[in-house]
Design a protein around this nucleic acid. Structure first.
Lengths: 119, 119
DNA sequence: ATATAATGCTTAGCGATACTAAATATTATG
DNA sequence: CATAATATTTAGTATCGCTAAGCATTATAT
């Protein structure tokens, strides 16, 4: 029998990560590695992703037209490597708004069950 | 391109459903069909599951020792069919407590990103 | 010089879980 | 007798985070 809690935490991330990544990019265009750091620091380590988790999310968001990417190759002195910077699109903003509303409804729903109310 | 919001809502359910089902059974032992109704009514229709979604969750919880089941075959007048009533176990209660704590942390984390703070 | 670390992107394969869809069975109602 | 409501079971699919590994560039340490 495997422990329940870690698996539970892992499953909770599914889906929500896309919204959080979109949110971060909306706040400030970033490249992948920077998003990894912002996620980890902004969550006190709770959202410490591997690259293999983040990049597929970025490719998916780009396929859906929610973000666009651009290589920053020009040497900006001291920058170690070429980066791919992601920026949110109008469609991405719409998606983000829709997802935030879904999240609010979902959160309220779960809280209802977790609270003292009848169900 | 598929719509983002419905897929997003579906993904959010993953993982949380197990906690909610456990919560409902902890509050009052129930059979599967009744859980389906309680979930639907308690969520204003947001959590309207098919049987094929709920029963695998119940079997999983039973395999893990979080709940136990007992057939109620005896005719209780007017009862249409034999039912399998699920009851939470001590391990199930422990699991529920742990999952609720994970949920609280997760919720706080997401709200941090969704709010106005820096990230 | 060369090994190591830090930065940065990509991809293949796996596992967990909600979904659709259907089959089965009993009782009450038309 | 047909239909609906109740009630459980299971087969197959899709999504998505995970592990794991590989490649490439620059800075630092040995």
């Amino acid at each position: 029998m495997e422990p329940c809690a870690p698996r539970f935490a892992q499953q909770l991330k599914k889906g929500i990560l896309e919204m959080l990544v979109l949110q971060l990019i909306a706040r400030r265009p970033s490249h992948g590695y920077e998003l990894l750091l912002r996620l980890r620091e902004g969550s006190s380590g709770l959202l410490t992703l591997k690259e293999g988790t983040l990049y597929p999310i970025l490719y998916r968001l780009e396929d859906e037209g929610c973000i666009v990417s651009a290589w920053q190759n020009q040497a900006a002195e001291g920058r170690p490597m070429p980066r791919k910077v992601y920026t949110i699109t109008p469609k991405g903003l719409d998606t983000l708004n829709a997802e935030q509303q879904v999240w609010q409804a979902f959160r309220a729903c779960v809280d209802t069950f977790t609270g003292r109310d009848e169900a």
